[in-house]
Design a protein around this nucleic acid. Structure first.
Length: 442
DNA sequence: GTGCCTTTGAAGAGC
DNA sequence: GCTCTTCAAAGGCAC
């Protein structure tokens, strides 16, 4: 059959090295990004794929510095975009164009300024063909001029068509969020660098890279996204995200249905319920990211649903067949019943260990996250206080891939160190994909 | 031809 | 206020 699920795909670059290795610790990954899912547990890494020292990071483009150069100092945001018509140049007449905004704002083309809302007036042809601003929707059936008389006879039908056309008004897409902007920018690079073309896999890589970005770099994307939202609001004042619900077809997503455990059960607790607001640092990463609890935690054992969920970003290597999510961090804590030992371990292996003692630990609070650069600008976000009162350091800091002691791919991983492990031969895993699904680290 | 996958973030609806 | 759902991009894949 075709490709394995993206979550189980080995992500290789041409040289066989794992993709998206996070930058070395010295490159300044904020501790709050060293969460399990975003880094370690996503496990895109391949077995024993950390031959390079910090200074030998094989992918310069993966380093925040380089990505920053590529991203922020190039006039065009999509230098690698093959399609010439991908985005028309943003008109210099727009004041916002000088603010460092990406060309992505073309999606809110200046034509939108002329026509603040597509529902108010017909779109000019060039706009209707614009792929990013509004999608043309279903193919429009132009009346055949030869049948005009017949059409005249069917004015009522025309009226209905008009109504239908009105219903088919141009689709105003949502403004891209920070991550989407980042993805658009970096996708081409990842595709060019790697053998992957499948977007699901690419997105996993980009998701990890996103987490490996420095706070400042992410903040730039957040700022761009914020500006894009503002522009979108200006262009389409009456637009609501709700307008796009159910757009196109009867498309109905049911992504999360594959986790039957969500159906309920006392054994499943959410992070919030489990740890409470006071200990958000122990929440799993998605919950922290969302600033709310989005994930059910199973009290014991694993299941396919969880695994698939936890395996996000996994390269699908043997070692990552069970990549411990951040939740597993805790479970590991419990199972080992030796926080001290873990601390020592993490200090051995994780930049988190290096980061935590940092005086800049103010950012160590997961809640401070990056995630809200807005917080830096606006006090409106409900995250005040996290800066003020630092929670005690989490029992086990998050680890970027390669430093996560739980990561079987890490030579210093718990598995490796404890000998519980896991096949680490990339050639084997590469040659026999079937073996990947067999491994389950307990 | 259509939906899914996969990521994060934003926003709306519902309770 | 919290939770859930949908959508935004992207392109290969499955049905």
């Amino acid at each position: 059959m075709g490709l394995p699920p993206a979550g189980h795909m080995p992500f290789f670059c041409h040289n066989g090295d794992p993709l998206s290795q996070p930058p070395p610790a010295h490159m300044g990954i904020p501790p709050y990004q060293l969460d399990g899912k975003g880094a370690g547990s996503m496990g895109l890494s391949r077995p024993a794929m950390y031959p390079f020292s910090a200074g030998q990071y094989p992918y310069p483009m993966l380093s925040p510095e380089m990505s920053q150069v590529a991203s922020w100092h190039t006039p065009s945001m999509y230098p690698l975009s093959p399609g010439a018509g991908f985005r028309s140049p943003y008109p210099s007449s727009l004041p916002i164009s000088t603010s460092g905004l990406s060309s992505d704002f073309y999606r809110f083309s200046p034509t939108g300024l002329i026509q603040p809302h597509p529902g108010l007036s017909p779109h000019p042809p060039h706009l209707s063909s614009h792929p990013a601003i509004v999608t043309p929707g279903p193919k429009q059936e132009l009346p055949d001029m030869n049948h005009r008389s017949q059409m005249d006879h069917k004015n009522n039908i025309d009226a209905k068509n008009a109504e239908a056309n009105e219903k088919k008004k141009p689709h105003i897409k949502k403004p891209l969020n920070a991550f989407m902007l980042y993805m658009k920018e970096m996708r081409a690079k990842v595709v060019a660098e790697c053998t992957l073309k499948e977007s699901a896999a690419i997105n996993q890589i980009l998701g990890r890279r996103w987490h490996s970005l420095s706070r400042e770099e992410q903040a730039k994307y957040y700022e761009k996204a914020r500006q894009e939202r503002q522009l979108h609001m200006q262009l389409y004042p009456g637009w609501s995200a709700r307008d796009n619900y159910g757009y196109g077809t009867k498309k109905k997503k049911r992504k999360k249905e594959r986790t039957p455990i969500d159906s309920g059960g006392n054994s499943m607790k959410k992070c919030r319920a489990r740890y409470g607001l006071d200990q958000q640092n122990q929440w799993c990463k998605p919950c922290r990211r969302k600033k709310k609890c989005i994930r059910y935690m199973e009290s014991g054992g694993e299941n396919d649903g969880n695994q698939s969920d936890d395996n996000l970003g996994s390269c699908g290597s043997t070692g990552d067949a069970h990549t411990p999510p951040e939740d597993d961090t805790e479970s590991l804590n419990q199972s080992m019943s030796s926080p001290g030992g873990l601390s020592a371990l993490s200090s051995l292996t994780s930049p988190g260990g290096m980061v935590m003692p940092s005086p800049s630990a103010s950012v160590a609070s997961p809640s401070v996250s990056v995630a809200s650069p807005y917080m830096l600008q606006s006090p409106l976000t409900p995250h005040e206080g996290y800066d003020v009162k630092l929670p005690p350091p989490p029992p086990l800091p998050r680890h970027p891939v390669g430093t996560n002691p739980h990561d079987a791919n890490n030579p210093l991983s718990v598995n490796q160190l404890t000998g519980q492990c896991v096949r680490n031969d990339p050639s084997e895993t590469n040659g026999n994909k079937e073996t990947r699904s067999i491994i389950s680290v307990t």
